[in-house]
């Protein structure tokens, strides 16, 4: 296996662009997913028993089926249901909904981990529901939900590679195309693996730093 750096240099703009698409889809999908997941988790907590059960159904379906099948259903099945989406919007929507299902479970576990007495105390003091979420639940569960959230972020980045199957022009698509074009598929895939690895290691490191900072905050808070 001969690794020719000139090939990489020649295609550097494309590689950077592909990395940009992957990062943008990943971060946007995650941000929307966190927002939607939080909404689902709070609705399940406060919306009564029926809402809780009804919302559990889509969450369980999304968590129990492969991401690839979900993408295929939306991308190939969508036009038959009047929903024609290009690869990028389809990818972003699928990534958002998929991550929302997982994040809602992370937040649900986070809510459950906050001692019940704290919530009751806040209720006795007359705090409103929004205030309880903002001032009691969120700060107390931040340290609990951070490690699983970082884990999930890494999983989502890796799942985003699957979007290459529906021709989203992200990192995997770009580099496989370069590999076929240059007759160096194996080298290209190796480079691809290294880029993903670097992003994953960097985000795991960021997560650890955030965790360390958050835990010192927790100890210094009165």
């Amino acid at each position: 296996m001969i690794f020719d750096p000139n090939v990489i240099l020649k295609h550097l703009p494309e590689i950077i662009q592909g990395t940009g698409v992957t990062l943008a889809l990943w971060i946007a999908g995650m941000a929307f997913g966190i927002a939607l997941g939080f909404l689902v988790a709070t609705t399940r907590r406060y919306g009564g028993k029926a809402t809780n059960v009804v919302l559990a159904i889509p969450v369980e379906i999304l968590r129990g089926t492969p991401f690839l099948v979900q993408i295929f259903l939306v991308y190939y099945g969508g036009p038959f249901a009047g929903l024609s989406l290009g690869p990028i919007p389809c990818g972003l929507i699928c990534l958002t909904v998929y991550s929302a299902a997982y994040y809602s479970e992370v937040f649900r576990a986070g809510f459950a981990a906050v001692p019940h007495g704290h919530v009751e105390a806040a209720e006795c003091l007359g705090l409103s529901r929004v205030q309880i979420i903002r001032r009691i639940l969120l700060p107390e569960m931040a340290l609990i939900v951070l490690p699983p959230s970082v884990n999930l972020a890494v999983i989502l980045l890796k799942e985003s590679a699957v979007l290459s199957i529906i021709t989203v022009p992200e990192l995997t698509t770009t580099i496989s195309a370069i590999g076929s074009q240059e007759y160096a598929f194996l080298e290209a895939i190796f480079l691809l693996a290294v880029i993903y690895w670097a992003i994953v290691e960097a985000s795991a490191k960021l997560g650890r730093i955030a965790e360390a900072r958050l835990s010192t905050f927790r100890f210094s808070a009165p």
């Binding site: 590679a161 993903y196 290691e201």
Partner: peptide
């Protein structure tokens, strides 16, 4: 740290 899809292709 590497997506399974990339591992499989590799």
């Amino acid at each position: 740290g590497v997506p399974l899809l990339v591992q499989l292709l590799f």
